[in-house]
Simulated scan of single mutants.
Amino acid sequence: GRFDVAAVLIGFVLIEILLLAGNGWACPLTAVAARFTGDRRDNFDIYLPRLLARYNKQVFGTLFVAATLYTAWCWWQA
């Protein structure tokens, strides 16, 4: 029932999406991590299994959209 908190958290994620979009859909910190290793596997810079790291934007993007739609639906019902 705390839609104000939900709106702030959704806003934080939207800011992160803007940062990713502005950086060619790559995390800006990937370049920092790349300076310390020659490893370039999909998960070299993130603590996720390789398959999940490869598709993390699709997986977590879908979850974000679903959760945002659910939040909007709950807000509409309130």
Rank of each mutant, 00 (worst) to 15 (best):
A7P: 06
A33P: 03
A7S: 12
L51I: 10
R50I: 15
L48V: 14
R35I: 13
K57V: 14
Y55E: 04
Y55D: 01
F12M: 01
N23G: 00
I17G: 03
R41W: 08
Q58S: 09
N43D: 04
G61P: 02
V59E: 07
L51Q: 12
R41V: 09
A26N: 05
L52V: 07
R40H: 05
Y47T: 11
W25I: 12
F12T: 06
I17P: 00
E16W: 12
L29M: 10
A6S: 09
R54A: 03
Q58C: 07
A31V: 14
F60M: 12
F44P: 02
D42S: 15
F64W: 09
F64T: 00
Y47S: 08
I10T: 01
L20Q: 02
E16T: 07
A53D: 09
L18W: 08
L18F: 06
R50P: 11
I17D: 00
R41H: 10
A31R: 15
R35K: 05
F60I: 11
A6H: 06
T30N: 10
A6T: 13
W25N: 02
R41S: 15
L9A: 10
I15K: 00
P49I: 04
V13T: 13
D45T: 05
L14A: 08
T30S: 14
R35V: 08
D42A: 15
D39C: 15
Y55N: 09
D45N: 09
L20P: 12
R35Y: 13
N23H: 00
A21M: 13
T37W: 01
P28N: 07
I46H: 11
P49V: 04
V59N: 05
L51V: 13
A31I: 03
G61T: 03
